[in-house]
Nucleic acid binder design. Structure first.
Length: 463
RNA sequence: UCCGGGGUAGCUCAAUCGGCAGAGCAACGGACUGUUAAUCCGCAGGUUGGGAGUUCAAGUCUCCCCCCCGGAGCCA
């Protein structure tokens, strides 16, 4: 008999028909009536399926009564309307196959709530909990929405390399990739001789797929990357990971305004999609993780984002009757507290800040005509802060070269990047969106370590 | 990396001035005719993160180390 996923059984109308399901037991409650209730979850939906196991089954005493939370079983039986409260249908078992028991003396999960911190220590078992099952489904839905959104708009999915020989991508400390023996590396004049390393030169894990995306946008018009990126920063916050996933669209013949349109549309699309696909999971987060989550997501799925310039942002902050830890003045970068104040207090909605001072932004951002600012943009969301950073890229060869020199970057490493401006250069723009932060915002989960299956942070790379 | 808060039973936590290390839940045994975080009775559960020190006596005080959480910086 063919197995049906529980999410399909729960909405099935085939009352009286035979059905087969399998999954992991959440609870078993025995009745004096000589039968047991078994709640089964297979990860396909938030809700589990209630199974009634009659005492007459031949393995009832020998096996079923040993089934506890965490056990893996398959059930064959009949779908019936449930006389009890709390579920529409249930299954009356005619056969129970026990694949694996979970000794309750050792099994670390229980029906009672366990702290997220403790669950990180058992990350291999936490997807079996309500919260992490729901996070996994929402994360999946957001990834699906991402591909759907860009594919529907004729973007090409580009796989950026994860290993790079450029140590000057300008986005933070990098992890070194090497096959040399760290205890005894080959040396040349005292220094490590990377000519003998696997790639014949020093290599690192990428911090961004942007530069690769730009090369493909300069041929395929509109592209996006969606892959892991790595930062060796010693960041210990609830918003940072050493290994995290980023989505980076890049569009040719586009300016900063087109870029902001795209970011806004994309973010709204994800909210709409996940509201449609994961109502049960979101209702759970709304009730147990962050009150008011559903109202906010619903509002965001349709509302426009507020767009202001950096100069206007500084003005608004200078007029604020709050005292900030970091002083506000034109030329200073916006701190977390400033970003939060703008998006949470001043406007109380998502905010896109554009045109930042050139001195605090990356070399590749397009210089504005005022000579002071660049065509950069940050998208700020209440609760998470910066979720998108992007810009129109500098397409003028001489201006880009000047920027590279001004910032003291190694010109020779950018020969291919400069080539894009020598041959058929084109105005183009793009941004990066931190996928984990999007999942955080969508689920209300406070810590980014709890929205990725196996978080990598300083001092922690288990599982 | 900096600042602050923590680490006690399987889990969530308590322990007054330094004086016998406790509770709820889970688990286990039993009771209960369809339960929904079931309920009731009973039983059991400990190298107090690791190390050193002060003391008649340390979960508690001192020092070193490890780990976790929150905030900041860096950023997505």
């Amino acid at each position: 008999m063919r197995r049906t996923l529980i999410k399909h059984v729960l909405v099935s109308d085939a009352i009286g028909e035979p059905v087969k399901v399998a999954g992991w037991v959440r609870t078993r409650r025995d009745s004096k009536g000589g039968f047991s209730f078994v709640e089964l979850n297979d990860g396909s939906s938030f809700s589990g399926l209630q199974v009634i196991v009659p005492g007459e089954l031949e393995n009832y005493e020998s096996e079923v009564l040993n089934v506890t939370i965490g056990s893996a079983v398959a059930i064959e039986g009949q779908l019936v309307e449930s006389p009890g409260k709390g579920q529409r249908v249930e299954v009356h078992a005619t056969k129970v196959t026990v694949f694996g028991l979970a000794d309750p003396d050792d099994y670390p999960l229980q029906k009672k709530r366990i702290s997220f911190e403790k669950l990180r220590d058992i990350a291999h078992l936490r997807p079996r909990t309500n919260t992490f099952g729901a996070v996994a489904r929402v994360r999946n839905a957001l990834a699906y929405a991402t591909h759907k959104f860009y594919q529907e708009r004729d973007f090409l999915y580009v796989h950026a390399p994860m290993i790079t020989s450029s140590d000057a991508e300008g986005a933070g400390e990098m992890f070194r990739v090497t096959t040399l023996d760290p205890a005894a590396p080959p040396r040349l004049d005292g220094a490590v001789d990377y000519a003998q390393d696997f790639f014949g030169k020093p290599t690192f894990l990428t911090v961004s797929g942007q530069l690769s995306a730009e090369t493909y946008a300069s041929a395929m018009d509109r592209v996006y990357t969606f892959g892991p990126t790595f930062r060796a920063e010693n960041s210990n916050t609830r918003r940072h990971l050493a290994e995290f996933w980023m989505i980076e669209p890049e569009v040719a013949f586009a300016d900063l305004s087109d870029n902001a349109d795209l970011a806004e549309e994309y973010i709204r699309y994800m909210f709409q999609f996940v509201l449609e696909q994961c109502p049960e999971d979101l209702a759970f987060f709304d009730k147990w993780v962050q009150e008011g989550l559903l109202d906010r997501l619903n509002a965001l799925a349709t509302s426009e984002f507020r767009r202001i310039t950096y100069g206007e942002a500084i003005q608004a902050l200078e007029q604020a009757d709050t005292s900030f830890e970091f002083p506000v003045h034109w030329g200073a970068d916006l701190q977390s507290e400033h970003e939060r104040y703008l998006t949470e207090v001043v406007f109380a909605q998502p905010v896109i800040v554009v045109d930042y001072p050139k001195d605090i932004k990356a070399f590749y951002m397009r210089r504005n005509d005022d000579g002071k600012t660049v065509a950069a943009m940050d998208v700020l969301l209440p609760g998470v802060g910066e979720i998108v950073g992007g810009s129109q890229r500098e397409e003028r060869h001489d201006v880009l070269l000047e920027s590279i020199r001004e910032k003291g970057l190694p010109e020779e490493e950018y020969w291919w990047y400069l080539d894009l401006r020598r041959f058929g250069t084109v105005p183009h723009a793009g941004f990066g969106l931190g996928f984990g932060r999007m999942v955080q915002f969508t689920t209300g989960m406070q810590n980014i370590r709890d929205v990725i299956p196996f978080p990598r942070t300083p001092n922690s790379a288990d599982f």
